[in-house]
Amino acid sequence: MTISAPQLQIKGAVAGYTPAQQILKGVDIAAAPGKITVVLGPNGTGKSTLLKLVAGFVKASEGDVLLNGKNLNALPVHERLGEGIGLLPQGRSAFPDLTVEENIELGGWSLRSDRKRLREAVEAMFVRYPHLEKLRDRRAGTLSGGQQRAVEIARMLVSNPSVLLIDEPSVGLSPIVATQVYKELVELRDEGRTILLVDQDVRAAIKISDYVYVLTSGKNDIQGDRTAFEGDLGSIVRGWLGV
């Protein structure tokens, strides 16, 4: 399967949770089609806020979010999936009291008018992630962290989004499961999807990246392709810590 993915651009974004406290202070990001674009930076620099801006939870007081040139600023959260934008939030977001199948089925909410297509999309996820098949009727809240993450990824993919916003995908996971999650992100990229990844795990994120942005205090700091960062991880992190 190859996706024809759009380019995601954030231009001069100023945004925050209150008008008096802007987290993003004029950020420019371009996530290329079919590439993994990683955003790094110290805690509190606005990485998650950036994804919330693209997902629609935070409004830009200045600047634009553009998808293939189309301005998304006024689009409410629930309409962004219709533009092909999927979000994997930070931490646990599987619905704990719903079964695995019910969770995944809700991922296809936008397909609900065509029940046959919805069923096919749900079943395709059980084919893609066969280890979820035997957990189909288990409540998501009873699963391990890694299993829940798999449910969340499957749920995100049911409607086949072309742009994936991934927020700290390995938080709370064992190293083995985290490795599998990063491997899955590479596969999703290879399918042609545009991926904007925000991560604290600098080494793992850079390893799978095509292009890297570093934010500091809500502003662009440095940027470049993976090779520019791979050899110099230590100095990047020391720079964040100010040592």
């Binding site: 997902a55 939870f57 959260v77 629930h78 309409e79 962004r80 999936l81 219709g82 999927g86 979000l87 939030p89 977001s93 599987a94 619905f95 704990p96 009291d97 719903l98 809700l106 991922g107 909410w109 936008s110 749920r155 409607s159």
Partner: peptide, 16 residues
């Protein structure tokens, strides 16, 4: 029911 468990996660799935 999903909204009751995680409103933001539900909205991301396209649920109004």
């Amino acid at each position: 029911r999903a909204i009751g468990q995680d409103r933001d996660a539900a909205a991301v799935l396209g649920i109004n």
